[in-house]
Design a protein around this nucleic acid. Sequence first.
DNA 1: GCCGTTTTCGGCCCGACTGTTTTCAGTCG
Length: 577
Amino acid sequence: MPKHNADIAAIFEEIADLLEIQGANPFRIRAYRNAARILSELPQEVSRMLEKGEDLMALPGIGDDLAAKIKEIVSSGHCSLLDRLHAELPPAITELLKIPGLGPKRVQALYHDLDVQTIEQLHRAARDGRIRALPGFGEKTENNILQAVEAHANQAQRFKLAIAAQYAEALEKFLAAIPGVAHVTVAGSFRRMRETVGDLDLLLTAPAMASNQVVRRFTTYDEVAEILSAGSTRASVILKCGLQVDLRVVEEESYGAALHYFTGSKAHNIAIRRLAQQSGLKINEYGVLRNGTRIAGETEASVYAAVGLPYIPPELRENRGEIEVARIGRLPRLVEQSDLRGDLHAHTKATDGHNSLREMAQAGLTHGFEYLAITEHSRRLAFAHGLDPQQLERQCDEIDQLNAKLKGITLLKSIEVDILEDGSLDLPDSILARLDMVVGAVHSSFNLSRAKQTQRILRAMQHRYFTLLAHPSGRLIQRRAPYDIDMLRIIREAKVRGCFLELNAHPERLDLLDTQCQMAKEEGVLISINSDAHSVYDFANLRFGAGQARRGWLEKSDVLNTRPLKELRRLIGRTMS
DNA sequence: GCCGTTTTCGGCCCGACTGTTTTCAGTCG
């Protein structure tokens, strides 16, 4: 069984959980969690790195011991430390940590005193009133556990960014209207534009005297289903939709420090605070302090400046090397949504879209596009009314006629052609030759082996008219795993063939992943940030695509559709045989 | 368990809220 990075990360997470219950050194536990995070974000497989004889200790947070453990897991399929821990503690016990309110100490006590090993046993113990008798527990804690266990059954999922945005924006409006409130900012993973968010972190500024009142008002928001906690400066609630919202109120002078703290990521914050420590400073959510005296904190930039760094954009704050490049003045100038001059993936009602060519062109114009590629599905995708060669011919004629009348925007003749299982394209060269560009995509046979799936896509990219690979990994967030492919080989082939990869901005896709964007950038392959619009409203999704691109460190020059039309035509116009 | 402008030991981010006690541990973000 090949071990993927995610498998190894899961083993390290489990080790961390078990060590925590045993009361091990917290920094040792952190080392395992840190390694799990590093591995799950790593774009290449460590098993492959080992095959190639690369040194795992070059990875941040991986030292002698963890490198040896990774080797052991890859070669033998198991980890002796985990085996030993399983012999010492019941294997299901880490499940108990997922119950809100239960941490390692309480889980340890429940196991030791009541032999609670599973969530079912926990439920019974709480119902029978046996928990309240334990030292450090009480009636209230027991009740909370009971409720948390019952809520765990239909536990809250992570929310896709676009969905969270709807709740966030409504809340922002509500909060901004509260007397005394100056700033309202959604921080946390939402501000970092992560593809899904576990909760919303809202930061408000208000005078200290008003703080209490502001928190109370927040808890009366119409959509609040449950108040988890509410103090004088912070509160947590669950909305009716199941989304948790954490609110924090600070004074204006602390806005920057609080925003930095509340935006995260945790790993980034820890690294920044460590830097501060090294120069005798302390950073908390109220400011940057030297010997107890505030020296910065009103803006985020002032916090970074205090530790000798330029402002780091939120999307980069994952502790994936951004601090090191900031220190040497090499931060990327991240691409902005407004840099996009066009969109290279859109459908009309000729197939499964909802608007006409003209309506899509008009909408493109209002989004400031100079060009828009029309990319219907091809005949293989019958359920989407995919076009056959004759239908595509007719659409090309229509586009030519419309282009003669349109001012300020040019429609590009294209197609989202199916890449068939053997890597051939779903339409003949005779019609592909007439197009401005060819977008290829996989819509079937998702479960091929890694070798076959990779070969399939490589072969498609070798086609003389192939221009752009749409949604390269095929994953649907929380619904469908990516197909098993060697993305680095595909990116390198794109470089050789002079073609491009898409970052599909649809909130369900956001495909390429951020780390894969970074990989493409390093290999010198341009990315096209496309909406995959099926209606005039979908161009708004480019916001999420731009966010993902920024998380992938992409600059304007790394993005194909930041180019003016003339340059774009030169780039997509290559014909290789 | 990792790591080094505090270099091979001795540190490792920091504060709010809750519940149980009565000064603090546990949990969470």
